[in-house]
Design a protein around this nucleic acid. Structure first.
Lengths: 126, 126
DNA sequence: CTTGCTTAACTAATTTTTTCGTTGTATATT
DNA sequence: AATATACAACGAAAAAATTAGTTAAGCAAG
């Protein structure tokens, strides 16, 4: 999957949040020194060319939708990251962050619970 | 922490792998249409300006070292990602990928083991 | 109809990133 | 010493990404 540039990613984050919207709706979700209308308009059209976004036309105005979900994008993004930084091993990544205390005890307990369930589920599915 | 551009990241990945090296050593680790010597030389000097790299001079030739470790960079990188895509919750991220079956049962069992240890350790540390 | 407003499309300008040729210097080789 | 080689530094050129002005078309209000 093609990577989003910084500006493109910002627009996608807004679209993922608001689900769909006109350029002016996207614009509203930028904070403070917000870019010009035309800047957003251009980026959204680039995203469309790249296949990340599509639109529904109402007369001359366009309502934009994400074509790729935030989860799909994050999935591909994290996979690249795990590959580049943890030789493709989720285990290495997660245990690294567990040991680094980036994951709190509470979170770890939650994660373990979920994993137990998943393991059970996937084992009975065979 | 400043973000690495694509080209910069490639050079850093090599430096992290070989620990230290002259431009030509870095160059060797690029595959196929490898960039020109000068391209790598320039990038490594940019990385130096940005504080990611330093060098030891042997006469006129420079041996380059990473100043930032791969783990520190990946830590900051994943934090940004978790923040942008999982509202800053490692738990959300990990359980998402567990449910997505991006993490194998074997890996999950390993992760649970490590977490149990970590939880124990961190609880006794209080 | 005419004026003004809104919007997409186009395009130009600017900035950032990437790439590599050129140059000068040091060192090795003859 | 003269020539060749290797390298860092510089800088220019090219490519990619970002930003926003201009234009033209549609529509609404008077």
């Amino acid at each position: 999957m093609r990577e989003l540039t910084r500006a493109e990613e910002q627009v996608m984050q807004v679209l993922w949040k608001i689900k769909k919207g006109f350029v002016k709706d996207i614009l509203e979700h930028f904070d403070d020194p917000s870019p010009a209308y035309n800047t957003v308009s251009t980026i959204v059209r680039i995203l469309q060319d790249k296949g990340f976004v599509t639109h529904k036309a109402y007369g001359r105005t366009h309502e934009y939708y994400p074509l790729i979900s935030k989860s799909d994008y994050s999935k591909s993004h994290l996979k690249t990251f795990v590959n580049d930084y943890f030789s493709n091993s989720f285990e290495k990544m997660v245990s690294f962050f567990a040991k680094e205390k980036s994951i709190s005890v509470k979170e770890m307990e939650e994660i373990m619970k979920i994993m137990e369930n998943e393991v059970k589920k996937q084992k009975t599915m065979r």
